[in-house]
């Protein structure tokens, strides 16, 4: 995860809160949040190698398929759930959003933007987008539900989800004026803090 994004998320996470990170990877973000913001954090991950790294870091982790496991945490009382660059890999991103906001008061979602201009050029010449941020070919990508910034914000609107904060980054994970003023065209990734209306 880009340092900029990690910093923004750290700012949004309330000190001492209870959080769950869906698709926590090797636990780097959670480790930071546990050490620096004193959170009670749990990671959810499916990859064994990454899980072992979490355990090595003393980051609590659960092996679960997010597609199947979101309903397990109904009574866990999380303050915040995080899903960084994973929602586009799920079978039902809309249901996942709904469930995340049921199991936690707020949620942080980051997602790649298919509306980014380089993706549009790819499509304009008749090819599926392959960019530095979306490097996999169509036949091997895990991103089965890619969307644009506008699509995602429309979905939030439809599902009565309030976007409390948002943040965009452009190429090379840098925050720029272009990606902030016209994110749907210039941002490579969107970072959202969401709350149920």
């Amino acid at each position: 995860m880009a340092i900029e994004i990690s910093k923004v998320i750290q700012d949004w996470v309330p000190r001492g809160s209870k959080i769950v990170d869906f698709g926590c990877g090797d636990g780097t973000l959670l480790k930071k949040l546990i050490d620096e913001k004193d959170v009670q954090g749990y990671g959810v991950e499916i990859n064994d190698k990454k899980i072992l790294s979490c355990i090595e870091k003393n980051v609590p982790v659960i092996k679960l398929d997010i597609d199947l496991g979101l309903h397990d945490f109904e009574f866990s009382g999380f303050d915040m759930s995080i899903m960084a660059r994973s929602i586009q890999c799920l079978k039902n991103p809309n249901i996942a959003l709904e469930k995340m906001l049921k199991l936690s008061k707020t949620c942080v979602v980051t997602l790649p933007n298919l509306g980014y201009w380089r993706c549009r050029i790819n499509l304009a010449v008749g090819k599926m987008p392959v960019t530095p941020d979306l490097p996999s070919s169509w036949y091997e990508t895990e991103n089965i539900h890619l969307c644009t910034i506008r699509d995602f914000e429309n979905l939030c609107e439809e599902q009565s989800i309030t976007i409390k904060e948002k943040f965009f980054i452009g190429p090379k994970n840098k925050k720029g004026i272009m990606s902030s003023t016209n994110p749907n065209f210039f941002a490579t990734e969107g970072v959202y803090l969401l709350e149920k209306k």
Partner: peptide, 13 residues
């Protein structure tokens, strides 16, 4: 899941 609900530091693999 019970451990998480009780804020216990716990991993499950």
């Amino acid at each position: 899941i019970a451990a998480i609900n009780q804020n216990i530091k716990s991993s499950y693999i």
